[in-house]
Design a protein around this nucleic acid. Structure first.
Length: 425
RNA sequence: GUGGGCGUAGCUCAGUGGUAGAGCACCGCGUUGUGGCCGCGGCGGUCGUGGGUUCAAUCCCCAUCGUCCACCCCA
């Protein structure tokens, strides 16, 4: 027998039952983003590899070992996007959209990282990303966070998701801190584990993320970024915090929140849940005031965040989403009546543009068809049979109540159905 | 990339060194033109794959692949 081909590891299918939650998430998010003035962009999945090495940071794991990179037929190095901000920035610069300050965009789609799959982590995963360009004021930092909080509320997830924030300061403050932290870590080398010793050299800020409990205790004594901030950076961060407080947003300042990507500066934040195991970050982002300049355009501040759709869907699946039942399921006595039945259903569809009307195409005994009608959850079953047909009539059976089956002229069916539909809504 | 758990029917799982079972699902019958509940019957498995031990392996051993969880990384 021919071997059955499976999906590629880490690239999962979304089946109908789950897709309902995806739709719900995307529709809810889209409506909210529009209300805050964000415009949609559609970005390619493939970009020049250099775009990512330049913006994400050459020594990050994402670039070093997680990108799907390959040579195009002409030899160019291309990569499947491992995140969305780099492509968004590229797009904005390329099309001159940064000349008008205050451009706000969003995008949605799959990202790719070659990681070992585990709960809440796939090789192809989807994000909804949001970016605002050209706004230096702390108000946009706060608004982005407030907007995301509003989304959690809309989705009924607010109680499960907590906000952590920190400031990484500007480039020079961060560099100074990096040096300071590295020195401090060196003094405590003998207490560090293998991973941390490695990161101490390559990316010392990441040591702060360690999950090793013994290390966490030690790191509580380490110098903090906040202490290192100059007055302007500190004022910016304080403003963000003040605006969040004023809006009633609960947040927790976290000295160890440093984010994985190199391009962040100033405000960084993560929305986390403890209901998804080890991958609890459901939405994360921050400022990247140097990124546009890094890509060769005029310096332009930026800020954005990305939501992990799989993770949010996993939380949404804990609640039930009422699927709307079909109004009608059409049962046909024998195949010779199917054409007439189809015409009748189409007339009904003309009269009820929003209702779900199903015609049985599998045939078989009426008993078998009625079983399918029942399983479909339809409110009504329409029976198209020879005897009624000769009188120009059809029968309607109420599947969800004890009401008696009734017979009515086929011509009156669309109008009668519309009445039934109206009484249900 | 590292470590651990698990791979038996479409799904959830039980089970035994002598080549397998349940529940659910699916199909049919109990109505000559009518669902749900109930009863009866049926379909469905190279027990992940390859090798080894054994008279004999789905069961024991090894390898491999897949999957899940954690590390790592991060949405």
């Amino acid at each position: 027998m021919t071997e059955i081909i499976r999906n590629v590891r880490g690239m999962p299918d979304v089946l109908p039952e789950q897709a309902v939650y995806w739709r719900h998430l995307e529709q809810t998010a889209l409506a909210l983003l529009q209300r805050y003035g964000y415009a949609e962009v559609r970005l390619p999945l493939l970009e020049s590899t250099e775009l990512f090495t330049r913006s994400i940071g050459a020594v990050t794991d994402i670039v070093e070992k997680e990108m799907y990179t390959f040579a195009d037929r002409n030899g160019d190095s291309l990569s499947l996007r491992p995140e969305g901000t780099a492509g968004a920035v590229r797009c904005m610069i390329q099309h001159g959209l940064l000349h008008t300050p205050g451009t706000k965009i969003w995008y949605q789609g799959p990202m790719f990282r070659h990681e070992r799959p585990q709960r809440g982590r796939q090789r192809q995963f989807s994000q909804i990303g949001v970016e605002a360009f050209g706004i230096a004021d702390a108000g946009i930092d706060a608004e982005l966070i407030i907007m995301s909080h509003r989304l959690w509320q809309r989705l009924g997830l607010a109680a499960k998701i907590k906000l952590k924030i920190n400031s990484l300061g500007n480039r020079s403050e961060r560099q100074q801190y990096r040096q300071q932290l590295q020195d401090w870590l060196r003094q405590h080398q003998q207490q560090l584990d293998e991973d941390s010793l490695r990161r101490m050299e390559t990316n010392p800020l990441r040591v702060l993320d360690s999950k090793n409990p013994a290390l966490q205790q030690l790191l509580a004594e380490a110098p903090t970024l906040l202490q290192q901030l100059g007055s302007a950076s500190r004022a910016h961060y304080d403003q963000v915090c003040a605006m969040l407080s004023a809006s009633g947003i609960d947040y927790q300042h976290d000295d160890r929140l440093v984010r994985g990507l190199d391009y962040y500066s100033h405000t960084v934040f993560e929305w986390q849940t403890d209901e998804l195991g080890a991958q609890g970050t459901v939405c994360a982002g921050g400022r990247y005031d140097d990124l546009v300049e890094l890509h060769g355009a005029r310096p332009t501040p930026g800020i954005g965040f990305a939501m992990g759709q799989e993770r949010l869907v996993a939380l949404l699946e804990q609640q039930s989403l009422a699927a709307s039942a079909p109004l009608l399921y059409v049962v046909v006595q024998d195949a010779s009546l199917r054409a007439a039945a189809m015409q009748l259903v189409e007339r009904c569809r003309d009269a009820l543009p929003d209702a779900t009307l199903l015609l049985d195409h599998l045939g078989g005994s009426m008993k078998a068809q009625m079983k399918r009608a029942n399983r479909s959850g339809a409110v009504l079953a329409l029976i198209v049979a020879a005897e009624e047909q000769q009188r120009g009539e059809v029968s309607v059976r109420h599947m969800q109540s004890d009401a008696a089956q009734q017979t009515l002229p086929a011509d009156e069916l669309p109008g009668w159905l519309a009445g039934q539909y109206a009484s249900l809504h």
